[in-house]
Design a binder for these strands. Structure first.
Lengths: 173, 173
DNA sequence: ACAAGTCGGTTCTATTTTAGAACTTATTAT
DNA sequence: ATAATAAGTTCTAAAATAGAACCGACTTGT
């Protein structure tokens, strides 16, 4: 399968991989959220090769996640800023960071925190369902193939998808 | 920078990239949540090469995201199941899926949905702060470098990190 | 004026990853 | 005996990444 094909996949997760499915892109976005805007800023902080950085920035730009805008003439220089799409990526970063912090332990402490803009308190991100307010975890949510189209669920096990019910049980703690 | 180094990075997001920072791993996890457990199941549904699939499964296993357990003797065969760590990855998938669905449009409809286990209703994932209940977006949350260690914030712009304040304004609707 | 420095890249070669297909081993089904 | 299934492994070719050097358009220091 080619890289390019991912962008046209019916699955949003696959399309997301077409944008952030590599070692660097998410880290570039992290830097954006930390306020970095310039080529050399990204390069120095990440240690990524300039070649790759240029390519990734270009991709993020064409995918509408970053925008490139001039910050000076003579010599003409551009900086990279999060677009609305890029800004709305924040919750993904939050969720990913939370997962990694809990499941990929490290001896060294996390070099940054997420705080609320108004109180300045560190946040503890949780994913909930907007409508019911219920927390969404593998115990409360199920991923189900859509009946639609021709071949979505072929090869999928019939029952007990997501293997949750069998494991979860009445362990509401 | 070498692949391996990411797993020891102080930043949880970087460590996460050491696990899911490629085109396939997240899609393998998607299949896990859809109920797929066997090598050929993953291979057929994803179209990934067997070589790479074997490597990715091995990595997910050594990182504690999946566990490999025998489901039959003679011939001995193993299946892959989400560990608690793997299951707790669900919110990340939710957030990523939501982002991609809103920001990377596609002509074809999403081939699956996330529904609540009890009501069966489709969910609308939002990330909130567990304590305050406040929704977490780039407007309400700020990513700040920790003062700690020696060189965390060098090269970072002093003010208006995350460029939020300037953009957000009183646009509370 | 001239040399050195900054910024945002591009170009180059060497190394690593990935793609794609074939092959292996153990065992059951026909 | 032959074919099929399952879970890999082993090849070679193609693609992506690393690492370092180079370039153009200025600005700054002397």
């Amino acid at each position: 399968m080619k890289w390019h094909d991912l962008n046209e996949d019916a699955c949003p997760l696959a399309r997301a991989m077409g944008v952030v499915g590599d070692r660097w892109t998410l880290l570039i976005l992290r830097e954006c959220f930390l306020g970095v805007r310039r080529f050399d800023g990204f390069q120095k902080r990440l240690g990524v090769t300039r070649h790759l950085l240029a390519e990734r920035l270009k991709r993020l730009e064409t995918m509408g996640v970053l925008e490139r805008r001039p910050y000076q003439q003579r010599p003409l220089r551009h900086e990279y800023r999060l677009t609305p799409s890029g800004k709305s990526f924040a919750p993904v970063l939050l969720a990913m960071q939370g997962w990694a912090e809990h499941n990929l332990p490290s001896p060294t402490p996390t070099p940054f925190t997420f705080v609320t803009r108004d109180s300045g308190a560190e946040v503890d991100p949780v994913v909930i369902d907007r409508k019911s307010g219920q927390e969404l975890t593998h115990r409360t949510v199920l991923m189900v193939p859509k009946p639609a189209s021709d071949q979505s669920a072929a090869d999928l096990p019939r029952t007990d998808q997501a293997e949750g019910a069998a494991v979860a049980g009445p362990k509401a703690k």
